[in-house]
Amino acid sequence: MLAEDSETSRRRFHLGVIYTLMGTIGAALGIPAAGYLLVPGSSNRKEEWVEVTNLEKLKAGEPEEIVFRRNRKDGWKILSEKTSAWVTKKPDGQVIAFAPSCTHLGCAFHYDEKHKNFLCPCHTSTFDLEGKPLEGPAPRALDRYQMKIEGGKILLGAVVKSQES
């Protein structure tokens, strides 16, 4: 009877240690692995401002697609690549620069001169000149570049995502 008891408690001790140690190893590997795959890493790269055009070259109320080069960090590489912006100077002089892809599924939209709005050819989403979605499946307004004007030149920074409407 006594021998059996000590055998049972011995077994329980063994099982307890096995599960605890295996669990500890699992956590010590699993947590860093999850962080490695899911948590965005650190990058000390500062966002650059790129000069794209002169303010005076823009016609008020008429969006213009401007193609420019910028540096983009992609993993371990810094790529210098072509990208574009739809830049609109409003009649009051304010300038907006939209990122060139539709907020639905990322297709490149264009300016529809006839209807005076932006049209995405993929699923016919339309946006007004302020970027607000008018028709179609697009869930939110067009994304905008950070923008500043220095010495009459337009400089673009990072793309800022618009809020879900």
Binding site: L29, P32, A33, G35, Y36, V39, P40, G41, S42, S43, G75, W76, K77
Partner: peptide, 23 residues
């Protein structure tokens, strides 16, 4: 061409990368 910079990326930028490569 890229092995060295990707290992360096793992070690200096990726979360937990230093630990994983260390292991």
């Amino acid at each position: 061409g890229e092995a060295h910079s990707s290992v360096r990326y793992i070690m200096t930028e990726v979360t937990g990368g230093k630990l994983i490569r260390g292991l």
